[in-house]
Amino acid sequence: MGNFLIRRFFNGILSLLVVALIIFVLLRAIPGGPFDTEKAVQPEVLKNLEAYYGLDKPAWKQFLIYIANAVRGDLGVSYSQLGYSVMDLIKDKLPVSVELGFYAMLLAFVMGIPLGVLAAYYHNTVIDYVSSFLAILGRSIPNMALAPLLIIIFGLTLRWLPVARWSTPDSKILPTIALGLAIAAAITRLTRASMLQVIRDDYIRTARARGLSEKRVIFKYALRNALLPVLSYSGPLIAAVLTGSLVIETIFAIPGIGRYFVISITNRDYPVVMGVYLVYGAFIIVMNIIVDILYAWADPRIRLTK
């Protein structure tokens, strides 16, 4: 376990370095720069700005300086918002995004797992068809289409819920649904498929042959096995939530890090983009380690040695 954590930690650091390098190169490869505006900026002003932010140095030097600072916890300052350090920005905006992501995941699991179990248990009945239909529907509507739809129906027409922002509890409902529904659908389908396979397994027949009730067979003998694939899928799922939140935060004007990230790319605000990428990367790495630990806990056949 200790070895596992140390090894995964160093692997994680290495991955982050690679991510940083790729983003650094890509950012400079896309046309345009941080100080491009509609009005022509005088060349001297531009020069001064670039010198101030160290953009006049050779690219490799810039990268090394960035990494050296990052290790010390300094991710630079925003180009577009004077005096705002990237670290402060992350501290301000990240909690909102984490909250949104957490609610979306919660919705996905709370909805997806029972629906998937029901569909599998009532395989080839109306319950299965309805649940599968909903799941396919949920998967096929992209969240950037679902969000406006929800806003129009529940916000503008029925006037039940606020259409934007992240303040009162009821303002959090629509963004959570918009972000979580597709993931709930994915979990429903995965749980159903996995459950259908597990209830054909021999140990389920053993449990039934021992006179245990269907309820006990499903919840004690089948579910834990069936949830193993769902658990290993939650790693990549977290990445899906992150990318989804970029869109949802922008549509609902939620002051999270995702919305800010989108703005920073258009502004070529290099330090912000780099910083957010690294935070996302670190987050995904940490979540995957947690998923692996949970998996080993749930499946006694797995040992955290390799």
Binding site: D201, D202, Y203, R205, T206, A207, R208, A209, R210, G211, L212, R216, K220, Y221, R224, N225, L228, A298, D299, P300, R301
Partner: peptide, 30 residues
């Protein structure tokens, strides 16, 4: 009847036992 009067054992004991539950858990359940 299954719990008290008829029992079954199968060809492959590896797949007939639940991999995520302890032997004790499975033995005592009934």
């Amino acid at each position: 009847v299954r719990a008290n009067s008829i029992s079954m054992i199968f060809q492959d004991p590896t797949s007939a036992l639940n991999p995520v539950l302890t032997i004790g858990d499975q033995l005592t359940d009934t």
